[in-house]
Every structure is written in structure tokens, then in C-alpha cells.
């Protein structure tokens, strides 16, 4: 199924929750609402014409305009087609609905995005830091992150 058909189907079913899209890109992407990601992803996985049974990657983003976001790379083992979904949220309210109930892979990926960008995934079963220590100050991959001078009494900068 082409990206255009996927977009048309999603637009028809979810309306406003599906935003802008760029379908002639090397990896065509569709923007979706951050409060309905789970519903949309569930539909993409379960509907036999899509059958996106594999979440290749889930990445956190910090965009130049100050917004945070998450990018989902989906792939269908059955139909051999793929699509990219994008969601955005603000720095002040960094909440995005979790998709870990749809793909188990998303559980740890979302924990990583939370660890590095401070994006809170609502309805996640176990949202803890996955790489940094539990008491690490701040979110290191945010563009405005400053390396702390000390961490647990250890000097951090060179």
C-alpha cells in the first residue's frame, strides 16, 4: 500500500487527529495527534490492509522551534510496506500517549525517550529512566541541556 493510500485511509477514519503529511519524501511521514497515538497505532496494527506488526524505531526529538516530538518508524512484515508517524508536544506540557500496549518494543524505547528528552508517555506501565541514574539531573539530549558541575560528589566536566 502506498503512503498516499495510508494517509487517505487514516484521514477518513480519524479526521482532525491526522495532520499534515509529506508523502513524496524518501521516508513518507504523517503527523498525528499526541493524544490519540495509541488509538491510531492500534488501528494501523490490527487492520489487515495495513498490518503494521513491527515498530522498527521510536525516537525522541527536540526541534529547532523548541517543540519536542516522537517519531515512529513502522513496518509491515506481511505487506512489506512502511510509514513514518510524527507527533509533537510542547516543552511546557511534554505529554504523549504511550503505544507500549500496541507494540511491546515501545516499552523500552519510550523509557529511553523519557530518559533523554523528558517526554512523559501517558499510560506507560513502567515509566522510569533506562540509561542514566535515577537521580540524574535533567534530560541530556535536550538542546538546552547543561552538563551538571557535580553528580553525587563527582566532578563531571573535563
Amino acid at each position: 500500500m502506498t503512503a498516499q493510500e495510508i494517509y487517505d485511509n487514516l484521514k477518513a477514519k480519524f479526521g482532525d487527529a491526522v495532520g499534515e503529511a509529506k508523502l513524496d519524501a524518501l521516508q513518507p511521514w504523517i503527523a498525528i495527534s499526541e493524544t490519540r497515538t495509541r488509538e491510531i497505532c492500534q488501528f494501523l496494527r490490527d487492520e489487515p490492509t495495513f498490518a503494521f506488526d513491527y515498530l522498527s524505531c521510536l525516537s525522541g526529538m527536540d526541534y529547532p522551534d523548541g517543540k519536542l516530538g516522537v517519531v515512529y518508524h513502522l513496518f509491515s512484515m506481511t505487506h512489506r510496506h512502511k510509514i513514518v508517524l510524527r507527533t509533537m508536544c510542547t516543552r511546557e506540557h511534554p505529554h504523549i500517549q504511550s503505544v507500549s500496549a500496541v507494540w511491546g518494543t515501545a516499552n523500552w524505547h519510550e523509557r529511553e525517550a523519557y530518559d533523554m528528552f523528558g517526554i512523559v508517555f501517558d499510560e506507560h506501565p513502567d515509566l522510569r529512566r533506562i540509561l542514566c541514574g535515577d537521580d540524574y539531573p535533567g534530560y541530556p539530549l535536550r538542546k538546552d541541556f547543561k552538563v551538571p558541575e557535580f553528580y553525587n560528589g563527582m566532578k563531571v566536566p573535563y
Binding site: L131, C132, Y136, P140, F145, V147, M154, K155, V156, Y158
Partner: peptide, 20 residues
Amino acid sequence: NCGGPYWEHGYHVLKGVDRV
């Protein structure tokens, strides 16, 4: 010894084990 390739941007790396 000194943080190696992570000496500048390694927010999570101790810059030399001789600090502890």
C-alpha cells in the same frame, strides 16, 4: 584514564577513574 572520546560531550562519563 581521562574520559577518552567522551571527554567533552560525555554527560554521563566520569572523566578518569582517578576521580573516585
